[in-house]
Amino acid sequence: MPLDSLFNTLKVSGTGTRAQRLRMDTIASNLANVNTTRTAEGGPYRRQVPVFEEVFDEMLRSEYDPREDVFNGVQVAGVVPAQKPFKQVYDCGHPDADKDGYVTVPNINAMEEMTNLIDASRAYEANLSVMRNTRQIISETIGLLRRG
């Protein structure tokens, strides 16, 4: 039935918008902490990066039956700290400065976060328009019942 498949499409796009929203949350957290020098783990805040993975089905490897509900979109494998080293900034009046007057600040580049934010919101919109589009063709299918 086409309708089953279309309802699953809505689910798939839903995982897409959820993943992009989480990405935006992470970016917001990174931007808010761009100057944070103290954290619970000690040391400055470390940039967080969400890692996405496809919800992968074994069946897809060889023969694949499109009727089966095998496309489940994307999921978040985890939010991991970025590996980039911290930056050293000279600020001798800062309470967290070391004996030479250098402060270790988070490994966050505000510009990079902003471009990622634009990318995330574009991708979010793309998923939304797939949803809108699918919804429209679902209602057209249901509209076939209205005749007669």
């Binding site: 039935m1 498949s5 897409g16 992009q20 996405f52 994307v74 998923n127 797939v130």
Partner: peptide, 24 residues
Amino acid sequence: LMTIAANKQKVIANNIANVNTPGF
């Protein structure tokens, strides 16, 4: 044709949902 187009929509939605998935 409707069944196939509905399945195709799902494949495309999956591609778009995975636009930021590494190695996809």
